[in-house]
Amino acid sequence: MVTTAYTREEIMGYLSEIADPEIPVLTIEEIGMLRDVLITEKGYEIILTPTYTGCPAMGIIEEDIERLLAEKGVGPVTVKLVYAPAWTTDWITDAAKEKMRKYGISPPEHSSCSQAFSVGSSVSCPKCGSADTQLVSRFGATACKALYKCNSCKEPFEHFKCH
C-alpha cells in the first residue's frame, strides 16, 4: 500500500544524508550519484547512477538507502540503477570537491575528461597546493582514484580521476 505521506523533496532530503562508503565526507547527493525519486502506484523508486560499473560501493549504498527509508517508515522502496546519461565527475559539486581536498584527496579537474588519460595533466597536491606532482600508479585503493606524490612537500596522495 502506498500512502502519499511523503513528497519527493522529503525523500530526497532523507537520502541526502547517506554517505559514500568510500569517501565518507561526501554524500551520495554531493557526488552526483543520487539522481531522482519517483513516486508511483507501486511505491518509491530511487534512481541512482553508478560512478563506475563495477563500483563495489553500490551494493552498500543500496542497502543503506533501504535501511534508512525503512527506519523512516517509507515504503515500499525499490532502487533502480540508471546508466544513461553516464555519470561524470563533472556532477561532483564544487563544495564537495573542496571537502574532498580537505580530506586529502585531490579532486578531479573541471570537465577535462578527454585529458584523463594524459598522464601529464595538472594534478595539484591537496596538502600544500603545489602543482609539481608525479603519477605513481594509475590505480589506487578504488577504481576511481590514482596514486600521486607531491615533489614539493613529498606527501603521497590520492587523486580522484576525471571520468
Binding site: P50, Y52, T53, G54, C55, P56, L81, Y83, V136, S137, R138, F139, G140, A141, A143, L147
Partner: peptide, 20 residues
C-alpha cells in the same frame, strides 16, 4: 603492487559491465 591494483581494477570494471 601497482599492477596488482591495476589488473584487479580492470577486472572489477569488467564484472560491473557483465552484470549490467
Amino acid at each position: 603492487i601497482e599492477e596488482d591494483l591495476a589488473l584487479t581494477n580492470f577486472s572489477l570494471d569488467m564484472i560491473g559491465r557483465a552484470q549490467a
